[in-house]
Amino acid sequence: MAVSVAVLRTVFGILGNIISFFVCLAPIPTFVRIYKRKSSEGYQSIPYVIALFSAMLWIYYAMIKKNVMVMITINTVSLVIQIFYISFYLFYAPKKEKTLTVKFVLFVDVFAFGLIFFLTYFLLHGEKRVQVLGYVCMVFSLCVFVAPLGIIRKVIKTRSAEFMPFSLSFFLTLSAVMWFFYGLLSKDMNIALPNVLGFIFGVLQMILYLIYKKPGTKVLEPPVINLQEISDHVVDVVRLSSMVCSSQMRTLVPQDSADMEDTITIDEKIKGDIEKMKESKEMFLISKN
Rank of each mutant, 00 (worst) to 15 (best):
A176T: 09
F180T: 06
I230V: 14
I200M: 11
F180K: 02
Y89C: 02
I152T: 05
S186I: 06
S40H: 07
F22M: 11
I151K: 02
S186A: 15
I286F: 08
L168K: 03
I28G: 00
G216M: 04
V155F: 09
I191G: 01
E97G: 07
F22N: 02
D267C: 10
W58S: 04
L172K: 09
G126T: 06
P94K: 01
I83F: 06
E221D: 11
N226D: 15
Y61K: 02
M189I: 09
A192K: 11
L79W: 03
M56A: 12
L185N: 02
T120F: 02
A176S: 15
Y89Q: 03
I207A: 11
I156D: 01
A51I: 04
T101E: 02
F170G: 08
F145M: 01
V70L: 05
S39R: 04
V7T: 14
S247T: 10
S169L: 05
I19G: 00
L25G: 10
S242C: 12
L197A: 15
K98L: 05
F91L: 12
S169P: 04
L124D: 00
K271F: 11
G272Y: 07
D188N: 14
G42I: 06
I230N: 08
C143Q: 02
I46V: 15
L133M: 09
E261L: 13
V102D: 00
V7R: 07
I274W: 00
K128D: 13
C143G: 08
P215H: 04
R33T: 13
V32R: 09
V5L: 05
P223Q: 06
Y135W: 12
Q82A: 04
C24G: 15
K96H: 01
I274C: 01
V136D: 05
I152E: 02
A2L: 12
W179M: 10
L133C: 01
L204H: 04
M206I: 11
K95M: 07
Y92K: 10
F201T: 11
L25T: 05
T99S: 06
N226I: 11
Y121C: 01
S241L: 13
I74C: 07
V155A: 03
Y89I: 06
E282F: 02
S78D: 04
M56H: 00
G114S: 01
T99V: 06
F113R: 00
E261W: 02
T265N: 15
T158Y: 06
